[in-house]
Amino acid sequence: MNWEKLESLAQLEEIKKESHDKSVLIFKHSTTCSISSMAWDRLNRNWKEEDTINIKPYYLDLHSYREVSNKVAEEFDVVHQSPQVLLVQKGEVKYANSHMGINYKEILSKV
């Protein structure tokens, strides 16, 4: 799976704009957390390339880009968690889940 890396604050405005044409998925990943690694692996194993027709996926390494992670929580009015997925549509988070609640089929059902 080819995830776009979320590494800058400017990308958040791009994501909001993109989400008016196509759903955007943000995966917030803690590289030091085994639960995060398990959720990341599970999502990647299930992800199909054709899913990118309806969803643009972004990956955020929250340790390397803490400022971006904090801004995601603020901009989209969500409580910070990790791992965490946010599905953005029309500039707003329409679905969020974290930890073992991250489920590929459930994400797709919200698009």
Results as ranks from 00 to 15, higher is better:
3 W>Q: 03
3 W>V: 03
7 E>M: 07
7 E>C: 04
9 L>T: 07
10 A>Q: 11
11 Q>H: 01
15 I>T: 01
15 I>M: 13
17 K>Y: 07
17 K>V: 15
18 E>H: 14
19 S>K: 12
21 D>P: 13
22 K>Y: 09
22 K>V: 09
22 K>G: 13
23 S>T: 07
24 V>K: 12
24 V>D: 09
25 L>W: 09
26 I>V: 14
27 F>P: 01
31 T>Q: 03
31 T>N: 03
32 T>L: 08
33 C>F: 00
34 S>K: 00
35 I>M: 05
35 I>R: 01
36 S>M: 04
37 S>T: 03
38 M>K: 08
41 D>M: 14
42 R>M: 14
42 R>S: 15
43 L>A: 08
44 N>K: 09
44 N>Y: 12
45 R>F: 13
45 R>Y: 13
47 W>V: 06
48 K>Y: 08
49 E>C: 10
49 E>M: 13
49 E>Y: 11
49 E>H: 13
49 E>V: 12
50 E>S: 13
50 E>I: 09
50 E>D: 12
51 D>Y: 10
51 D>N: 13
52 T>A: 09
52 T>E: 07
53 I>G: 10
55 I>K: 11
56 K>R: 14
57 P>I: 08
58 Y>L: 13
59 Y>L: 06
61 D>W: 02
61 D>Y: 03
62 L>M: 09
63 H>G: 11
65 Y>G: 07
66 R>T: 11
67 E>L: 11
67 E>P: 05
67 E>M: 09
68 V>C: 11
70 N>Q: 09
72 V>S: 02
73 A>W: 03
73 A>K: 01
75 E>Q: 11
75 E>V: 14
76 F>A: 12
77 D>S: 12
78 V>E: 05
79 V>L: 08
81 Q>L: 05
82 S>W: 00
82 S>M: 03
83 P>F: 08
84 Q>N: 03
85 V>M: 08
86 L>V: 07
86 L>R: 02
86 L>D: 00
87 L>G: 07
87 L>V: 11
88 V>W: 00
90 K>F: 14
91 G>P: 15
92 E>N: 12
93 V>G: 08
94 K>N: 06
96 A>N: 09
96 A>W: 01
96 A>S: 12
98 S>K: 06
99 H>Q: 03
100 M>P: 00
101 G>C: 03
103 N>R: 04
107 I>C: 09
108 L>R: 03
108 L>V: 01
110 K>P: 01
